[in-house]
Amino acid sequence: MRIPSRLVESKSAAWDRLAGPGDWWTGEERLAFAAEARAAFAERHQAPWLRTAPAGLMSKLAADANQIDRSWATESISEVGEAAYVELVAIAASIAVLDAFAEALGVERTPLPTAREGEPTRREPEDMGDAGAYVRMTTPWSDANVARALTLSPSGNALYRGIAMPFYHEGQFLDLAWDRPISRPQAEAVATAVSAANECFY
């Protein structure tokens, strides 16, 4: 079966972004977190006591995100830092998309890339504010909250949105009719089924 070039290219771009330094973590650290997320994601359907992946922050994000509450998030943020935590959410979410895509197609997962050297920027954007979430994000905002959720980490936001746009709406989020092989209602039926199975309130 033929995979559209936009999906192939977005995966390559994600691997390239992941391998380099981010805002708070080096490329080597980002790949170590990605490997942890990948192991946990692969075991997400197993009971926690049967899993072999180490329990921890990345495992929670990758395998049990629907169990996260403010208390857990606050504790995790106090351990790694708020923006660094957001970068990890982006890594876990990105790995989840690409590995779920491989599972969906019934093909092998692509091995993680090799880390590139370099230092994290260690900078936060200036327009961050409280939107009622666990972390600060861009304010003011007129789009869906999920589109600004990762803005505290520009590199994490670029990593995730570089995948999410081509995999989902290709810039047609507000259009109710898509000029694509899959119709908008068909896409939303799929999205609803996945969201319900993951017990995601948002």
Binding site: N145, Y168, Q186, Y202
Partner: peptide, 25 residues
């Protein structure tokens, strides 16, 4: 393939939403 892509990306969206605790729009 398009359905697989949408199914996959929502595995990410739910983690972004739950990991950051964003309120429903």
């Amino acid at each position: 393939v398009e359905a697989a892509a949408v199914a996959a990306v929502f595995h990410g969206y739910v983690r972004v939403a739950d990991g950051t605790g964003i309120p429903v729009d």
